[in-house]
Every structure is written in C-alpha cells, then in structure tokens.
Amino acid sequence: MSTSSTTKQPRPLASTDLETLGLDPARHDAWEIGIVYRGIDGMVSEHLWQKRPSEQALLEADPEALEINRYHERMVVPEGAEAFDMIHGVPLTLGELFKEIHDFLDGAILIGSNIGFDADFLRRMLGAAPWHYRPVCVATLAAGFLYSAEPGAMPGEAYSFSTSAVSKHMGVRQPGPDERHTALPDARWAFDLYTTVCSSPGYDERYRPGLVDGAM
C-alpha cells in the first residue's frame, strides 16, 4: 500500500518531552510533560503539566531517574490533586490532563530527541497514539542533514547522533544545567533544532519539500 500523496496537507507540530520515573514504560510512570505546539497557522504555544505518581509507582521508581530529573525538588502538584497545569496554575484530574494532551497531539507530527522513548510512555499514558504515524527524532534529522552537507566532516562513530553534538554543529542553544532534564526546556530545544535544520540553506535541495511536514 502506498503511503505517498500528491497533495500534502499541513499538519500541526508537537515538540514533546517527558520526564519519567525510569526507562521502562511498562513499569515506570511519566510525571512531567512538556509540549511546544506549532499550529497549521504557524502560531507557537507552550504547554507544561505535572502528574502526581501513585505511591506504588514511586516505590518502583529508579532512584537514578529521580535524581537526574530532580523529581523531589521539582514536583509541585498540590496535595489532593492528580495533576497540574504549570502554565495556568490550574489543578486537573487525570481525565482532564489526558484529554488536553490528546487534543494537542491529535494528528500532529510528534518530534523530539529520541522521540520513540517519549512516544512509548505517551501511548501507555493515553491508551492511544493520536499523533501522525511518523514521529521525527530531531537528533537523527540533524545528523543526516549535517552528514549530507559535509560527508566525512566527522569520522565514523564520532559523528554522534546525540542532540548535544548536532546542536553544537547547527549552532542551536542548549538548555543550561538547571534546565536539562526538565520537560519544557527540552521540548524547546528539540523544537529549535528542528526549525533550524528545516530552515537551513540547502535543506530543500537535499530533502523534498514536505517530506517531514507533509502527510507522507
């Protein structure tokens, strides 16, 4: 079955990052969700939520993950609330939280650094995958673009697919030490890297227009 289309409709873009209690979506929970959303009208908005894990989820949490994303320092969901809209300062039920996230991701192109990781947690959280079927890892996108521009510029495995390495080469600002491993700054970072690659000279010549933003 062909997945190509002669007419590609514009799609929203949802740069997404999650902070989690560990690396296994089957055992660990996501507790912070950040989205930088670009609508089909080009308007960009930012969204950030926290979700209070259950006591059992915290018992099963990986201590290293809690330390890296500073869970105990940064958790602000009020006692008695299930979730919290960090932008508007509004407590939410889990149902309200899941609906808000679902609505932003519905039909959107999901992008992020190692976005497959976040997608697995989102799929478990929402019970569905409402986004476009082809998520985009911004680090891989940037590495491919850089390599096509300067093949052999960095030898072998040293040509790292890490977001830090490709951001340095693309001149994209990285989050500071206090911002790393927090959902919204990391979502902004992915959004900035994506838009930098897609607006770089030579991008349209080497990648068919609409390949990422279209409905292929």
Rank of each mutant, 00 (worst) to 15 (best):
M1P: 04
T3F: 13
S4W: 11
T6C: 09
T6W: 10
Q9F: 07
P10M: 08
R11V: 04
P12W: 01
L13F: 07
L13E: 08
L13H: 04
L18C: 14
L21T: 15
R27L: 11
H28P: 14
D29G: 12
A30Y: 12
G34F: 08
V36Y: 10
R38Y: 00
I40T: 15
D41L: 12
E46T: 13
E46F: 07
W49V: 10
W49K: 01
P53Q: 03
Q56N: 05
L58V: 09
E64S: 05
A65W: 05
A65M: 10
E67H: 10
E67V: 12
N69T: 09
Y71N: 08
R74H: 15
R74T: 09
R74G: 00
M75F: 04
M75Y: 01
P78A: 06
A83V: 10
A83E: 03
F84C: 01
M86I: 14
I87Q: 15
G89P: 00
P91I: 00
G95R: 03
L97F: 14
L97I: 06
K99G: 03
G107W: 02
A108Q: 03
S113E: 01
N114V: 03
G116D: 15
A119W: 02
D120Y: 03
F121K: 12
L122K: 12
R123S: 13
R124T: 13
L126V: 13
A128H: 05
R134I: 01
P135T: 08
C137T: 00
C137M: 07
T140N: 09
L141F: 09
A142H: 02
A142K: 06
L146H: 03
S148F: 04
A149S: 07
A149L: 08
Y159G: 08
S164W: 01
V166C: 10
V166T: 04
Q174L: 13
Q174M: 13
P175C: 11
E179D: 13
E179P: 04
L184A: 08
A187K: 05
R188I: 05
W189T: 00
T195C: 07
T195R: 05
S200N: 11
E205S: 13
E205R: 13
R206A: 14
G210Q: 10
A215D: 14
